[in-house]
């Protein structure tokens, strides 16, 4: 470089960051540029490619339940910091930042409502909040949603998205797997349906508990679903991962998922299942 001196640039390049952030989004599948407004109206599904972007919990609830039927419950439950956990950042601050970012108190929003006039208890995980990691507060809200289902004989619907247990709460977060699964055993004994809906991504501890325990397990297209992360598997086994490994389609083929359902058809599908299970006849 020294012989030529300092390089001179005269061309003006449009950098990625110059595109206004909140106006356009690029589809990761086709690179198609799409209006955010259009994307939002379409429940964050790219119209041409059917790529499913993550959807916040409240939009999921309103897309699934009858309009105006949702009554939120257990809004007073908050995460604590039982381990006084600090890594490169401390846990308390992390929770606060995420509360500010998402305007939610934690990862799970739960309550009751109706789908095609059939009452349900529902819990939805919001991936934007710390990767929807499962801590004590989230586990408690999910357990209460299941227990309310038991009490009212309401079918329970859980829409999962999660990186796994919240390690900042240590062993207590692992125990949420046992707590939620035991509540599901009670629901099952009462012969009340549980529909588990898996979205991108649903991994680790959440998959190793309620997400895998649905009477019916539905998945959105092309979601990453599994126990161990793909990188960990690759490093451990030193093997190339099969094409489409740990996607919804892979799990349908391997027999875990009952059905892959487009986000726009989820409400109708769940409605048909609940009707089949006799929920429509409930007095």
């Amino acid at each position: 470089m020294a012989i030529f001196g300092k390089p001179q640039y005269s061309t003006v390049t449009v950098k990625k960051k110059d595109i206004p952030k909140d106006v356009w989004t690029k589809c990761p599948k086709t690179n198609e540029i799409i209006y955010n407004r259009v994307l939002k109206e379409n429940l964050m599904v790219v119209p041409n490619s059917d790529y499913h972007f993550p959807l916040d919990a409240r939009s999921r609830i309103s897309s699934l339940l009858d309009e105006g039927s949702f009554k939120e419950q257990d809004t007073n439950i908050r995460s604590l910091d039982p381990l006084n956990f600090t890594a490169t950042a401390n846990y308390k601050d992390k929770v606060k930042q995420n509360q500010k970012k998402t305007n939610e108190t934690d990862t799970v929003i739960s309550g009751e409502g109706t789908i095609q006039n059939m009452p349900v208890n529902i819990a939805v995980m919001d991936f934007r909040f710390m990767g929807a990691s499962l801590g004590s507060a989230a586990g408690e809200k999910i357990t209460r949603a299941i227990e309310n289902g038991c009490k009212n004989k309401n079918p329970v619907i859980i829409i999962s998205a999660s990186g796994g247990a919240r390690m900042q709460e240590g062993i207590l977060s692992l125990m949420q797997l046992a707590k939620t699964s035991a509540a599901l055993a009670k629901l099952s004994e009462l012969k009340v349906p549980f529909i588990s809906i898996l979205t991108n991504p649903t991994m680790a501890g959440v998959m190793a508990s309620y997400a895998s325990l649905g009477d019916v397990i539905l998945a959105e297209p092309e979601a990453l679903i599994g126990f161990a992360g793909p990188r960990v598997i690759k490093e451990t086994t030193q093997q190339d991962l099969p094409k489409g490994f740990q996607t919804s389609e892979f799990l349908l083929e391997h027999g875990l998922v009952d059905k892959i359902v487009h986000r726009h058809k989820m409400r109708d599908t769940v409605g048909r299942l609940l009707t089949a299970f006799g929920s429509g006849k409930a007095s």
Binding site: I77, S136, M175, K179, A183
Partner: peptide, 10 residues
């Protein structure tokens, strides 16, 4: 197992 977990209930 139901009682496991530490959280705040306002």
């Amino acid at each position: 197992f139901r009682n496991m977990g530490i959280f705040e209930e306002l």
